[in-house]
């Protein structure tokens, strides 16, 4: 009963529509769209977005509002999900716990070279320590670009994870933060830094601390400066002051190009 025409007709009828999931899955696998979820951050719940290359955004829920608002301000299409993939979630928890990026991948591929360098340098600042904007500018080989460093950090897509809260004004004031100065202070406090103490020191014009036993000077929050006992503690107003007194810069916090 299958006449010749039936055969080709039957074959043509085997055509099917692809499942609706194909397009979404392909776009996800080619990192066209990011996924996002809400996780517990250091200052409350936060939106975290990611794709196959890494985390693309980390924003306090309070700062953005509803999920729809987050999706609108996210630079790429973001699809809500329950939780990040297990591996990413593990490294994210690790980062939030230790204050270090560790093995958490961050996708900075859509960010310009200068800003990427600034953010990568910023990620090197250990928890519990702060550096001035000028330090980043000098470390990335652009000592004059202090304001640009400030702008680049202000647009940090993954604050907290890349710790731009650990970068302060060159005069020692805690300075601005994309999500407000109070959040910056509270993030620093969680890491054992007393912002008032830092600002009080800066208020007296002190920017560097040295030890007269080693002859080395540091930023006040450098882990080497914190070990200096009061008896051997020397305060400096500037790198020049310290150098004049015969001190050399610390090789860990690098307050001046060594």
């Amino acid at each position: 009963m299958s006449r010749p025409d039936d055969l080709t007709e039957n074959l043509a009828s085997l055509r099917r529509s692809a499942p609706k999931t194909v397009l979404d899955d392909v776009l996800r696998r080619t990192d066209f769209v990011d996924e996002y979820a809400v996780v517990e951050g250091p200052t409350g719940p936060a939106y975290v977005a990611w794709n196959g290359r890494g985390v693309t955004a980390f924003v306090p829920v309070d700062a953005v509002g509803e999920a729809g608002d987050f999706e609108r301000r996210h630079p790429r299409t973001a699809i809500p999900t329950d939780t990040p993939p297990a591996r990413l979630e593990k490294h994210l928890e690790q980062t939030l716990h230790t204050g270090r990026l560790g093995r958490l991948p961050i996708d900075l591929s859509s960010i310009g070279e200068f800003q990427r360098k600034v953010l990568e340098k910023c990620a090197e600042i250990p928890p519990g320590e702060i550096r001035p904007y000028g330090w980043i500018a000098r470390e990335i080989g652009n000592p004059g670009a202090v304001r640009a460093v400030g702008t680049a950090l202000g647009r940090n897509p993954v604050p907290v994870l890349i710790p731009c809260h650990r970068v302060v004004r060159t005069d020692g004031k805690i300075g601005n933060y994309a999500y407000g100065s109070p959040m910056k202070r509270s993030l620093l406090q969680r890491e054992g830094i007393d912002p008032d103490e830092i600002e009080a020191l800066a208020g007296r014009g002190i920017r560097l601390i040295g030890s007269d036993t080693t002859g080395i000077y540091c930023y006040p929050t450098c882990r080497h400066a914190r070990g200096i006992s009061d008896a051997h503690r020397v305060e400096f107003r500037s790198e020049a002051d310290a150098e004049t007194a015969g001190f050399r810069p610390c090789k860990v916090c690098r307050p001046a190009a060594a």
């Binding site: 085997l14 529509s17 692809a18 499942p19 080619t30």
Partner: peptide, 14 residues
């Protein structure tokens, strides 16, 4: 690219 997928996904799947 998304249009490439939309244009050809049914054929490839079939």
């Amino acid at each position: 690219f998304p249009d490439l997928v939309r244009s050809f996904q049914d054929g490839i799947y079939s």
